[in-house]
Amino acid sequence: MPLDSATIVRQVLQLHADAVERWHGQPLDNPYTGLLGVVCQQHQYNFQLWHEEDIARRTDVTDAQIAQVKRNIDGFNQRRNDWIERIDETLLEMLESQGVAAPESAPLNTETPGSAMDRLSIMSLRVFHMEEELARPDATEEHLSRVEPKRQRCVLQRADLSNSLQELLGDIFAGSKRLRVYRQMKMYNDPTLNPQLYKTQRKAG
C-alpha cells in the first residue's frame, strides 16, 4: 500500500462502514490484506464489544449471564487495544519499507494513528445504530427529534477526526512527525500484575 494519507483514510472509512453493515447480516469476515486487514480485525473487536455492551444493560437475564457478558467485554476490550498497537506497528513497518525515518527532533502526536482509527471504528458503529434508530417503524416524532441531532453530530465528529488523521499520517509519511507504538499495559488482565488474581492463585496453591 502506498504512503498516501488521503487514500488510506478514505479506504479505512469505507472499510468501517461496509463491514458494519455487512456484519449485521452475516458472520464476521476479513477479506482484506496488509494494513486494511489489521484495521478490519481491530474493527471486529469493536463490533463485538459494542453488542456485548448492549446485552450488559439488559435486566431480563440472569446474573450468571451478565457475569459472562462482562468477561466477554473485558476480553474484547483487551484485544481491541492489542490491535490498536498492531495498526501502529504495521504503519511503522510500512515506513521502514519505504525508507521513511523521522529525525529524533521531530515531534510526537498526542494520539497515534491506530488510536484515531479505533475512534473512527466506534464512530462508524454509532452512526449505523443512530440510523437504525431513525428507521425504526415504531419511532415516535419525539424519538426522531432526539436521535437526528446526535447522528448529525456523530457525522461531523467523524469528518473532523478523519481530516485530523489524514493530516497526521501526511506528517508521519513526510518524516516531519515521529510515530511511536504506545503499549496499553492493562495490568488487570495480567495474572502476575493484578493482586486480585495472583493473591487468589497463591492461596489456591
Rank of each mutant, 00 (worst) to 15 (best):
L169F: 05
L134G: 02
A19N: 09
V12G: 02
R57I: 04
E93W: 02
Q166W: 00
L15N: 08
T59W: 00
D118K: 09
L15M: 12
L49W: 09
L35Y: 01
E85Q: 11
V20K: 03
S115P: 00
A64H: 00
E21Q: 10
K70Q: 10
W50E: 15
A102R: 07
L120I: 05
R58Y: 05
N194K: 03
S97E: 14
L161D: 01
L92M: 15
A56G: 14
R158P: 00
Q42S: 07
N30P: 01
G34F: 02
L134E: 02
E52W: 14
L197K: 07
F47P: 00
S97M: 12
I122L: 10
R151E: 08
G170N: 02
F128H: 13
P137M: 08
F173N: 08
M185N: 11
K150D: 03
R86H: 06
D160G: 00
T112P: 01
P2S: 13
G114V: 08
D138G: 01
N194E: 09
I73A: 06
Y198T: 13
D190M: 09
Q11V: 05
E21L: 10
L36C: 06
L3R: 13
K203P: 00
R58F: 08
I87A: 03
W50S: 09
V20S: 00
P149S: 04
G99E: 04
M130K: 14
D63V: 13
L125Q: 14
A116R: 15
E53K: 13
I172F: 01
V12H: 05
Q14K: 11
W50H: 15
L36I: 07
K150A: 05
D160T: 10
R180V: 15
D190H: 13
I122V: 15
A135Q: 09
N81P: 03
L108W: 00
D171N: 08
A6I: 03
A135K: 05
F173W: 02
P191E: 02
P107R: 13
V39N: 02
G170K: 06
L28M: 07
L15S: 02
A64M: 02
A116I: 13
T59S: 11
L3M: 14
D138E: 10
F173C: 01
M1W: 08
A204V: 12
V181H: 01
Q166V: 02
I73H: 04
T140E: 13
